[in-house]
Amino acid sequence: MRRTPRKLPLTALRTFEVAARRLSFKDAAEELCVSATTVSNQIRELERDWRCKLFIRKTRAVVLTDEGRSLGRVLTKAFNDIRAEVEAYGQSNRKTVTLAVGPIFGSRWLVPRLTQFRSDLPNIELILHDSPRITDAAMMDTHLAVDWGEGSWSGLQNYHLMDIMYAPVLSKALMVERGGLESPKHLARYSIIHQRNRSEWAAWLTLAGCAGLTLKEEITITDTNMVMHAALEGQGVSLGIFPFVEQELKAGKLV
Rank of each mutant, 00 (worst) to 15 (best):
74 V>E: 09
52 C>A: 09
109 W>Y: 13
116 Q>A: 12
104 I>V: 12
205 L>P: 09
143 H>E: 14
208 A>C: 12
198 R>H: 11
23 L>Y: 10
110 L>V: 01
109 W>T: 09
82 I>A: 10
190 Y>V: 05
216 K>Y: 12
14 R>K: 13
178 R>C: 08
171 S>A: 13
16 F>S: 06
252 G>M: 07
159 Y>M: 01
71 L>H: 03
123 N>A: 09
247 Q>P: 08
59 T>C: 12
64 L>E: 11
141 D>Y: 09
31 E>T: 14
90 G>D: 09
19 A>R: 07
85 E>G: 08
102 G>V: 01
100 A>I: 07
158 N>R: 06
86 V>C: 06
249 L>Y: 06
105 F>C: 00
239 L>T: 10
82 I>K: 06
44 R>P: 00
232 L>R: 03
94 R>M: 09
158 N>A: 11
95 K>Q: 09
8 L>G: 01
22 R>G: 09
47 E>V: 03
212 G>R: 07
104 I>A: 11
120 D>P: 04
87 E>Q: 02
51 R>H: 10
78 A>G: 06
117 F>K: 02
61 A>D: 14
90 G>E: 11
87 E>R: 00
96 T>M: 04
108 R>T: 08
59 T>F: 11
23 L>I: 08
134 I>S: 07
71 L>C: 05
233 E>G: 09
51 R>N: 15
172 K>L: 15
38 T>Y: 08
18 V>P: 04
189 R>K: 14
55 F>N: 01
189 R>I: 08
66 D>F: 12
98 T>H: 09
191 S>L: 03
207 L>M: 14
111 V>M: 15
88 A>D: 02
21 R>K: 11
101 V>L: 07
41 N>P: 06
165 M>H: 12
179 G>H: 05
56 I>S: 03
9 P>A: 00
240 G>E: 01
114 L>G: 07
74 V>M: 13
24 S>M: 06
237 V>S: 03
3 R>K: 14
253 K>R: 15
201 W>C: 00
234 G>V: 02
186 H>M: 13
60 R>P: 04
170 L>M: 15
227 V>D: 06
219 I>T: 14
44 R>D: 12
200 E>M: 12
100 A>N: 05
56 I>G: 00
187 L>D: 00
160 H>E: 02
6 R>N: 11
189 R>C: 07
71 L>S: 03
120 D>N: 00
237 V>Y: 05
96 T>D: 05
243 P>Y: 01
102 G>N: 10
162 M>I: 10
164 I>P: 07
115 T>V: 15
53 K>F: 09
85 E>Y: 06
176 V>G: 04
104 I>L: 15
71 L>D: 05
92 S>L: 06
89 Y>D: 13
131 S>M: 10
